[in-house]
Nucleic acid binder design. Sequence first.
DNA 1: CAATTTCCATGAAAGCTATAGATGGATTTA
DNA 2: TAAATCCATCTATAGCTTTCATGGAAATTG
Lengths: 307, 307
Amino acid sequence: MAQSNPNRLKLSQLRALVAIAKTGTFSDAALQLDLSQSAVSHAIATLETELGVILLNRGRQGAVLTPVGATITAEAEAVLNRLDTICQQAQLAKGLQSGQVRIGGFRSVATHILPAVIERFRQQYPGISVTIDEFSHYRRVDESLREGRIDIGFSYLPAGKEFDAWELLRDEYIVLLPPAAKPVNAQLTWEQLFSYPLIQTPPGDGCRYKIEQYLMRHQQPCKFAYDVREDSTIVSMVQKGLGATIMAKLAAEPIPDDIIVAQLPDPFERVIGVITLTDALQPPSVFAFLDTIKAVWGGKPGESQAA
Amino acid sequence: MAQSNPNRLKLSQLRALVAIAKTGTFSDAALQLDLSQSAVSHAIATLETELGVILLNRGRQGAVLTPVGATITAEAEAVLNRLDTICQQAQLAKGLQSGQVRIGGFRSVATHILPAVIERFRQQYPGISVTIDEFSHYRRVDESLREGRIDIGFSYLPAGKEFDAWELLRDEYIVLLPPAAKPVNAQLTWEQLFSYPLIQTPPGDGCRYKIEQYLMRHQQPCKFAYDVREDSTIVSMVQKGLGATIMAKLAAEPIPDDIIVAQLPDPFERVIGVITLTDALQPPSVFAFLDTIKAVWGGKPGESQAA
DNA sequence: CAATTTCCATGAAAGCTATAGATGGATTTA
DNA sequence: TAAATCCATCTATAGCTTTCATGGAAATTG
């Protein structure tokens, strides 16, 4: 009996078969494939010879699939679909060979979250340029995103409903006390807290804003002894005994060993999330970066939540 | 940016890609594909141009897949596998375009079970010739199967362990009484049974044998008034009042309305099954016929049981 | 450090093969 | 009977795949 050799099958033959199955006649299939009727006829004849099987019953009103023909047509369609997939994946990869991603975040993000993500991203997509904007206030992040100056923002949740957002981590505000501070319970009283001069970031800073709101909510005075821009400088000042500070834990890192860490009288945290503009048509590079964030931070890709 | 058109992909290119992925170098791939190294190189170059993507990083120790290359290789393999599937299915169908199936069964099978099966089979596989041997005794069926004169046998279960067997139906033996018989309970006593002259198939017939065994098991006399070969003749004779008969229900069909049907003093049935030789290398046609039997008789194909 | 070996790329020519175009047969429709 | 529709077949050709012949680059060897 004849030999049917997979290596001798031609894609054009499969395309012809599928087209005939869809259109019902050789001629229409030829039209659809932009070929001559002769070519289609030839293709099927060759395919049938090769497989040693009649695939189509020809009649006056066109061609009808035989049972084998139907089976094989299904397979052929699957093959052609997969070919499309190959092209699509190539397209996608091509889109990731170049392009840019513009990231925006407030300071502690840039320092503590982004480096690991960017390292991995540059490794995986060396062709994509990454720019980072650093903002002093998280509201500037939202603003830049809205105005299209950045593609991905790190900000606080909940975010406005014009954003797609998902939570990255929860970051608790803590109190840093000088090494010389006399031992206290982990949880401070307001009185204990205000017994130290407070060192904070200057007005207009996002953290300062959050802390002022917090104190106002508890009807406490917003009296600060020093305004210092750099978190690390604040930490140094605390370490040298100049005062205490309220600071998000992430921003305080690395915390020197001799500094005393205490909890606020009322626990308080910020939720750091990743946000993108809901109705922006993102280039593949942006999706790739989001995936990388999720990969680095353990989130499951594709799972997002509007908050 | 370039356009990658699925219609321009060539199977030879995919084969080259997969071969390189497997062998690790262009040269070995060429060897495996029985092509020149140049051909493989060209194939990949064209494919990469077409897709607009680098699939392989070439180095001193051969070629290594890029991430995209790996993705696409996986797809390509799937495509090629499906091509194999197409050929296999064609092969299978080809095996069913001709061939023969030799069936053997005792008489009531040939009359009552086979017609529906054969009709469907001939419709589905018009090229396969079906021959039917009819035997008076089920032992002749087993014998013919063992000696290779038939491929599929209808016989009684349990079957010898040289056979693959599965149950087709259970067929109860019943008593047919003349229309004039005085009303009786559905279940006869031995006495009632023997008050009629008994009409049976002649000695050597499978049914006769079964019935004799049954009576002997119950220490009853094997006294028969008439030996008649044809089941339908026996039924007619009962109908005309010449006597009663013990007969499998299937063999008695169609049972005339005026005949009285009663149960044996001790219920008794035969199990009709389909058997094939366990270690025979069956041609596809045989499998096809078995599938048709199962399809017609509601059995789930592929489910078989040795008894 | 030259020589060798083992990679892959490239360009031109050869060989196949898919395709178009023209024709014809078969069957249905008018 | 003529016309229309559908598919098969034949031939010539354009296009593509493959080979052949070369060459360059990188590792290995003596």
